[in-house]
Design a protein around this nucleic acid. Structure first.
Length: 205
DNA sequence: ATGACGATTTACT
DNA sequence: GTAAATCGTCATA
């Protein structure tokens, strides 16, 4: 299956967040094993105005440097002292926006994902819908960490997104973003998108 | 040098 | 429903 191209990523993050639903995130491990899943939940983060974004107020640091770069690269950050989260950079250099990948429907390499997720949790308690139903869960399942921050999703060999099944608008729902209550009015904006009724969502939408 | 804080997950009451 | 886990990052000094 063909990968998404640079033009696909270089647009408004809220539009991109919807367009990414139904596409397939692929991670190729060092031993060549392919892990993949259909993207079923995303959130858009909008540049310097968005109080919930890491680039709020024009903040530009070593950590968020990827958000300021060209579209189609990964922005992977570490948070809460233990979790990684993956974003896809949108728009153009100097317009720091991104889309957080919040949940996948596992497709390839499910047993390997289960092994990655079982480091801290008993495998017997892990249902398939527990593998990638949250931003830090999918990062752990696919072995995505800061080593992949800045990775080019168009030319890279370890992390990219392939075309999936097109998703009609009536199967997409929008709602407030998760975990950004500190962001004032920006916390209420409907910038979280998900596939209606999909069991892999981090929460119902 | 120091302190406060997470774009979360998990277990437990 | 609530709380703990756990540490890199960033603003302040």
């Amino acid at each position: 299956m063909a990968r998404l191209n640079r033009r696909f990523y270089a647009r408004d993050p809220a539009v991109l967040a919807r367009a990414l639903l139904g596409q397939v995130l692929v991670r190729v491990l060092a031993d060549g094993v392919r892990l993949s899943g259909v993207i079923v939940e995303t959130e858009a983060y909008l540049g310097v105005e968005d109080r919930a974004a890491h680039t709020c107020g024009g903040r530009r640091t070593a950590r968020n440097a990827s958000m300021w770069g060209p579209a189609g690269h990964a922005y992977v950050y570490f948070t809460y002292g233990m979790h990684h989260c993956m974003n896809v950079v949108a728009e153009a250099p100097g317009q720091p926006s991104a889309v957080l990948l919040r949940a996948l429907e596992p497709v390839e390499g499910i047993e390997r994902m289960r092994a990655h997720r079982s480091v801290k949790i008993a495998a017997s308690r892990l249902r398939q819908i527990d593998l990638c139903s949250g931003p830090a869960k999918l990062a752990q399942a696919l072995a995505i960490d800061r080593a992949l921050d800045g990775a080019d999703l168009i030319t890279g060999q370890m992390l990219f997104i392939e075309h999936g099944q097109p998703l009609p608008a009536d199967r997409i729902a929008a709602g407030p973003r998760i975990g950004v209550d500190y962001a004032g009015e920006w916390a209420q904006k409907p910038l979280r998108f998900g596939v209606v009724g999909n069991p892999n969502l981090s929460r119902a939408l």
